[in-house]
Design a protein around this nucleic acid. Structure first.
Lengths: 127, 127
DNA sequence: CGAACCGTATTATTCGACTAATACAGTTTA
DNA sequence: TAAACTGTATTAGTCGAATAATACGGTTCG
C-alpha cells in the first residue's frame, strides 16, 4: 500500500501536481514499486484534506503517463515499467537541482558554498 | 537602473511573486543596491509581456516590505536597509535549499551524492 | 444476494492570478 | 507652460485550481 505519511504540502504549487510528484519521486527512489496498492480517491482526499476530484485529476494524469492502472470498481495499482524508472529519476533530479542552482546563483552564492550549504542543511531539515 | 535582463520565468508560480523574488535575490546578492532606479510599471510590463497591474502588485508588496520606495508621479527606487539585506539573503537561501533537500531525499538520494550533483550541475546549467 | 466499497462522470460555485481598458493626479523636462 | 512621463485607482472579464454535491455502474466479500 502506497502511504502518504511523508507527504508535505510546501509550496504554492497545485495540490494535484504535488501528488503526481510525490508518486513520481517514490517510484524514482524505489520506495513505491510496481504492484503497490494505491489509496482510493475518497480515502486519500479525506487524508489530505482536499476534494476527491483533485485526487482523481492526479490519478488520471498518472494513468495517462502509464505509471498507475485503474479499473472501474476495483482498486488502483502502481504499474511503472522498469525502463521508465531511471528516466523519471534523472529528470526529476536535474529539474530540481537546476532550479536551485539558478536561484542560488541569483543570490550571489559560489559553487563550493552552495554544495557545503546543501550538506549542512541535509542533517537539519526542521524549522 | 535595475535591469531585468536575467529574469527568466521558469516555474508556474505567479509572475508577481517571481518579480518580488527577483528583486529580493538581487538585493541579497548585492547586484541591486539601495538608491537604484526601478523601471516604471508600464515599461516593465511591456518588457516582460504582462499586464501593468501585475507589476503594480509586485511593487506594492515590495514597498510594504520596505524594500523599495514609490512617490506618486515620480520614479521608484530601491531602499533596502543594510540590516534587512543579510536577513533576506539567509531566508531565501535556506528556503531554497530546504525545498531541494526534501525533494532529493524523496528521490532516494544520499547527502554526498546530492552535494556532488549540485557541484556538477553548477557548471552546466543548460539543457 | 446485498451491502460496502471502488472508479468515473457531471454540474455549479468559489477563489486567486491575470488581462483589459480607462481614468486621474503628481512629476519631470524641453 | 505643456507634453510626456510617472504612480495610483477602478471596474469588468477570462482562466485554471479547487470545492461541493451528487449520481451511476462495476467489484469485492461476507
Amino acid at each position: 500500500m502506497v502511504t502518504f505519511s511523508s507527504f508535505v504540502r510546501t509550496d504554492s504549487a497545485p495540490v494535484y501536481t504535488q501528488i503526481i510528484q510525490y508518486i513520481q519521486r517514490g517510484i524514482a527512489a524505489g520506495t513505491i514499486q510496481s504492484g503497490d496498492e494505491l489509496p482510493s480517491r475518497r480515502m486519500l482526499s479525506a487524508l489530505l484534506g482536499v476534494n476527491p476530484n483533485t485526487i482523481q485529476k492526479a490519478y488520471r494524469i498518472l494513468e495517462e503517463d502509464g505509471l498507475i492502472q485503474s479499473h472501474s470498481g476495483a482498486k488502483s495499482y502502481v504499474s511503472a515499467a522498469p525502463e521508465q524508472r531511471e528516466k523519471i529519476r534523472e529528470q526529476l533530479l536535474t529539474d530540481d537541482i537546476r532550479k536551485l542552482v539558478q536561484a542560488l546563483r541569483q543570490s550571489g552564492l559560489e559553487k563550493t558554498e552552495a554544495a557545503a550549504l546543501v550538506e549542512r542543511l541535509w542533517d537539519e531539515p526542521e524549522s
